[in-house]
Amino acid sequence: MAKKKKTSPGTLAVNRKARHDFNIESTIEAGIVLKGTEIKSIRRGSANLKDSYAQVKKGEIWLQNMHIAPYEEGNQFNHDPRRSRKLLLHQREINKIGEQTREVGYSIVPLKLYLKRGNCKVLLGIARGKKKYDKRQALKEKAMKRDVDRALKARY
């Protein structure tokens, strides 16, 4: 059985698919605006970053398509699971990201959702999409590294 990868204690969700589909060129940390029961649901581990992305609209940056399951103990004021969520960044950072993503092929992809001093943060990556042959090459390199590690472990 495969070992589960260790994550840091504050990490709540990781977008593993992003590193496979994109070349991450730079990262930036952003706060996230949440409603009532969303933070409780996130702390439970009910957040999913798969297929989510961020985009700049009218000088603000919004996280789209991130799924946060409704809080079970919540009442009728529970949130919509896939609503757009505003990200908190300084205006100069938003402008910088906007300039970088205006180039063809660049996207803003959330990589990790975590807690920092009790606040929920998102690690965003400025990413360029990989071609199919790049993905195959990355899988080959990963397999070769795994084989080398196995051989060294068996030897010592």
Results as ranks from 00 to 15, higher is better:
114 Y>P: 11
102 R>I: 05
59 G>E: 05
75 N>E: 14
58 K>Y: 00
127 A>Y: 10
97 I>L: 15
71 Y>N: 08
98 G>D: 14
64 Q>D: 07
119 N>K: 14
38 E>R: 03
61 I>K: 02
89 L>Y: 08
52 S>A: 07
125 G>P: 07
90 H>A: 14
121 K>T: 06
116 K>L: 12
86 K>R: 15
79 H>S: 07
46 S>L: 12
66 M>I: 08
124 L>F: 03
105 G>M: 09
85 R>Y: 02
40 K>T: 00
117 R>P: 03
77 F>V: 06
70 P>Q: 10
84 S>M: 10
90 H>V: 11
62 W>I: 15
98 G>N: 15
63 L>H: 03
59 G>H: 07
114 Y>N: 09
130 K>E: 12
61 I>N: 02
78 N>Q: 10
116 K>W: 01
134 D>G: 09
55 Q>K: 13
139 L>T: 09
39 I>E: 12
116 K>T: 09
54 A>R: 02
138 A>W: 00
83 R>I: 05
70 P>Y: 00
65 N>M: 02
69 A>M: 08
72 E>D: 11
109 V>C: 04
123 L>S: 08
86 K>V: 05
71 Y>E: 10
59 G>T: 05
98 G>C: 04
61 I>E: 02
53 Y>T: 07
44 R>Y: 00
123 L>Y: 07
65 N>E: 05
67 H>L: 12
82 R>S: 08
94 I>P: 08
46 S>V: 00
52 S>R: 07
64 Q>H: 13
93 E>F: 00
103 E>M: 10
116 K>Y: 08
110 P>E: 09
76 Q>N: 08
60 E>W: 02
141 E>L: 12
94 I>A: 10
140 K>F: 04
139 L>Y: 06
132 K>V: 13
113 L>E: 02
78 N>D: 05
79 H>N: 10
102 R>L: 13
52 S>G: 06
46 S>P: 00
83 R>H: 01
116 K>R: 12
116 K>E: 14
78 N>C: 01
58 K>A: 14
108 I>A: 08
70 P>E: 10
